[in-house]
């Protein structure tokens, strides 16, 4: 059920997860890998998805929820078409990541963890991306893969986002 309008959300049939269960069948300790694949497929881990994985693996839903909320990679809410991962590593912090975050927030009207109304962008602050020499840095993950933008300024970050938006 959709929280906003009450309409029934389309239910995934989880067929895409079959090869994942096959691959990890009988390999103990694969829960994190299964959750990663599920998130790759569905974009996030809904409570329903967690319930389904529980029914197939025998791991209690509470434990799956515990694992999913422990690691920063997992999301329990859907995200927009493009995920902005804004680096908050030390080098980026020292070189003004806070100003870049401000510029993104001003431009898109979303704060860390939120998605734009048109479902285009989600903003996530992330730990170091490891491109410290290009600080401040952001990585944008979209339908065509990841793209990294370095040496950001308040102007260039807005320009980069607009270029992405213009792709349609």
């Amino acid at each position: 059920m959709c929280d906003n309008c009450g309409a029934a959300a389309p239910r995934p049939d989880y067929g895409d997860l079959e090869p994942v269960f096959e691959r990890y069948a009988g390999i103990a300790g694969s829960l994190i890998s299964i959750l990663q694949k599920a998130q790759d497929i569905y974009g996030y881990l809904s409570l329903e998805t967690i319930g389904y994985i529980s029914s197939r693996t025998g791991v209690p839903p509470a434990k799956i929820y515990g694992v999913a909320t422990f690691y920063t990679q997992f999301r329990l809410e859907p995200i927009g078409e493009y995920l902005i991962m804004l680096c908050q590593g030390t080098a980026c912090h020292v070189n003004g990541a806070a100003l870049i975050e401000e510029a993104i927030t001003d431009h898109l009207g979303i704060v860390d963890g939120e998605t734009t109304e048109d479902n285009k962008f989600t903003l996530n602050n992330v730990a170091c991306l490891g491109c410290c020499s290009l600080a401040p840095v952001m990585m944008v993950k979209g339908p065509d893969g990841e793209e990294t933008f370095g040496n950001l300024t308040k102007e260039s970050v807005v320009k980069a986002l607009e270029t992405i938006r213009a792709r349609g």
Binding site: Q88, G89, T90, A91, A127, C128, G130, C131, C132
Partner: peptide, 11 residues
């Protein structure tokens, strides 16, 4: 799992 922010030699 190079988690130290500001280190990228392992990468």
């Amino acid at each position: 799992d190079e988690g130290d922010p500001g280190a990228f030699m392992d990468r």
